[in-house]
Design a protein around this nucleic acid. Structure first.
Lengths: 242, 242
DNA sequence: ATAATAAATGACATAATGACAATTTATACT
DNA sequence: AGTATAAATTGTCATTATGTCATTTATTAT
């Protein structure tokens, strides 16, 4: 039998296949707090429970799984170019009452201010981390959310990832606050500024942010900016995994 | 409708589901070379091509996906407690001629010497990395193999992971060689020994390895040993991604 | 004995960090 | 206008880990 003959006879539905979904933890920072976007389920199972946005791969319309993730993100936030990273895949017999199910977990970082409020439907809502973890999430989404946060925190220790959460211009103090929010821990200012300045990822715009006190220099992403810049050393921060 | 009524009516086969497999890059070191285990496919598609070991999740027998991975590893190597890590999941419409397919990629590290040769079936064979990448692997397994190697190399830069490839007792020089093999790059001896000794992961056994020259102290994993120990700094090695 | 070789250590310059003091530059309020 | 205040920014220095390279140690082969 040739391969083409084999393929002609092949029936993908002949064997039991697991349910296969993509779920996302979409993070943004609003009012000095790290928040995650949840949706209220309108259908069984876990009807009326809050859940991470997600859904089945659409084999007809999605070329690959990252396209599924981007599609979900666009539907829920209207954002087209987020930072998007695959975290892990979790699959077992017990996580979905409908049957053996696998989910591909992603996390996304977006700038809260670039959201259009009217693009967020009624059944979606931004939660602080602690509220989200207390809200009896659908399926195993509490575990998924913990995994996503842990990944975000650990990468924040040694990469420039949180810059993805910033608007186009920002001060170094604002950036440091972003790191501290994510890590839930304060950082030594001098070390922080030194490593950021040495990285070459940012450039001063020349503009200043006017505040009630001494104005701060504004920075923007430079031509050398990249999400996954790795700093030469590690921040001396202990991360308590959720 | 209640949730239990919903579930009674739910048919998992109603919607198109992707093919779902687990594939593994199993690494070991033999004769000063990093090798990967490949199997020759006996069935279509890609009949007679070399491929990473793997297969469909067995929904009846596997509780979760890591069990699928462990099962495959046991079948091919007879090894029950390897280092096993999920790398990434790849899913798209084009990687499998049978249809839209997702694979969950793992890599495993095993001590070559703890293999029983008769446990390796005829259709399996250890390849050097360069040979494996040249051998026209089935599906997108060349890409998967590159991803697995890259993950292994990057983690070797800042964790103690390669200790998983060592036998129960070994010298520091042997351990350094293991790191150098994986990174395909030489390391400064003093720095290497310093960071390993400072980690507390190993203890001297008191025994010496008799060689043709000055004997070397033998070390074993200590009570503080853990696969995922992160060293305080990064090795100053440039990793050329495959 | 001595040469050769690998194992192991010592010494020192370099790089990044953390802590903390000092300085700068605005506003707010007499 | 002058001063207190607070945040932004920079300076200094001890500490830690690294990379380089020379030196010492322990064994076998000759």
């Amino acid at each position: 039998m040739t391969e083409s003959e084999f393929l002609k006879k092949y029936n993908p539905k002949e064997f039991d296949a697991p349910l296969c979904t993509v779920d996302m933890a979409i993070f943004a920072v609003e009012k000095e707090e790290l928040k995650v976007l949840l949706i209220k389920r309108v259908e069984h199972p876990f009807k009326n429970h809050w859940a991470l946005p997600g859904g089945f791969c659409d084999l007809k319309n999605d070329k690959d799984i990252s396209e599924t993730a981007h599609r979900k993100l666009l539907e829920k936030t209207g954002i087209t170019s987020p930072y998007l990273e695959q975290v892990e895949s979790i699959g077992n017999a017990s996580r979905d009452p409908r049957g053996w199910a696998i989910t591909l977990l992603y996390f996304a970082l977006i700038d809260f201010d670039s959201l259009q409020t009217d693009e967020v439907a009624e059944s979606t809502q931004w939660f602080t981390l602690t509220d989200a973890l207390k809200s009896d999430l659908a399926f195993d989404h509490e575990i998924l959310l913990r995994k996503a946060v842990n990944r975000l925190r650990h990468k924040t220790r040694y990469t420039a990832l949180p810059i993805s959460l910033m608007p186009s211009e920002f001060t170094l103090t604002e950036l440091q606050s972003m790191f501290e929010l994510i890590l839930a821990s304060s950082l030594p200012t001098k070390s922080f500024r030194r490593r950021v300045e040495a990285s070459g990822l940012l450039v001063e715009t020349g503009e200043m942010r006017a505040t009630a006190r001494r104005p701060a220099a504004l920075y923007a992403r430079s031509e050398f900016y990249s999400d996954d810049h790795i700093f030469p050393g590690l921040l001396d921060v202990v991360i308590q995994d959720l």
